[in-house]
């Protein structure tokens, strides 16, 4: 049976199914590589390359990248969740707004392209690590337990390569840049929506926020006034908990 997502399945089902599908793809790729090498001496680097391709594909398409690329969550995801992904219209938007949006979208695309280079680097380095360590770990058996050990090695190499890349200053700057650009896009889109809201006489987020701030100030003032007007509480004898039968060391 192939794991598939049925209507109404939970997020957990979906997460498991995605991981299981990737895993089965990996095993299939592995099986195909084995079959291609039948009768020849086995080549670990070729297998590692194949697995690296799977890894890179996973990095580019799976939720692992979501914290940055905004596919479905992450700081970038805040923006992509916005219902008006395209400009709202010439009446709602000033020319300079359009240019700003376009600039941000271009910047975002450039940053994502840079991110893809890092994914390639991770996949390449992971493959090299995997190839170097494969010989000692692989018994040649296609039993479940030995394949799981191989998979664990693959994960270990992938995490190590990933950690090496994502700790670099260059990657950290890129990651922050992506999040900042995505957030700026979100704000830009909101600004356009506010223009539209004002045109229809509707309250805007900015106005609601201003009201919230004023309300907080008033609440704070009220607390201050109350604490000043309350009489000093009578001194109570504060008791300590009983310590019967206990001694401090």
């Amino acid at each position: 049976m192939e794991p598939s997502l049925e209507p109404g399945t939970s997020k957990l089902d979906a997460a498991f199914s995605e991981a299981a599908e990737r895993f089965l793809e990996l095993i299939r790729a592995f099986g195909a590589e084995v079959a291609a090498q039948a009768g020849n001496s086995q080549d670990g680097s070729s297998l590692a390359r194949r697995l690296a391709e799977e890894l890179e594909r996973w990095l580019r398409t799976s939720s692992s990248a979501q914290a940055w690329n905004g596919a479905n969550g992450g700081f970038g995801g805040v923006w992509s969740a916005w219902p008006f992904a395209s400009p709202i219209g010439p009446r709602a938007e000033q020319p300079q707004d359009s240019q700003r949006t376009l600039d941000l979208l271009t910047r975002f695309a450039q940053l994502q392209a840079q991110l893809a280079l890092h994914w390639s680097e991770i996949a390449r380095n992971s493959a090299n690590l995997f190839a170097a360590r494969l010989g000692a770990s692989w018994t040649g058996s296609l039993q479940f337990d030995s394949v799981m050990r191989l998979y664990e090695l693959w994960i270990e190499c992938a995490e190590r390569a990933y950690a090496d890349t994502v700790r670099k200053d260059e990657f950290c700057r890129l990651q922050a840049d992506l999040a900042n650009t995505a957030t700026a896009l979100l704000l830009q889109q909101r600004q356009q929506a506010e223009t539209l809201a004002r045109a229809f006489g509707m309250p805007t987020r900015t106005e609601v926020d201003a009201l919230h701030r004023r309300l907080r100030e008033l609440q704070s003032e009220l607390r201050t006034q109350r604490s000043r007007s309350q009489p000093e509480p009578p001194k109570t004898t504060r008791k300590r908990p009983s310590r019967s039968g206990r001694k401090r060391k």
């Binding site: 997460a15 498991f16 995605e18 991981a19 299981a20 990737r22 895993f23 996973w58 799976s62 939720s63 692992s64 990248a65 979501q66 914290a67 940055w68 969550g73 992450g74 700081f75 995801g77 998979y151 664990e152 994960i155 992938a158 995490e159 990933y162």
Partner: peptide, 16 residues
Amino acid sequence: ALFLSLMPFRLMHEKY
């Protein structure tokens, strides 16, 4: 998503 991305292969793949 941010926390999972600290160790994505273990937390989004191997765990399952």
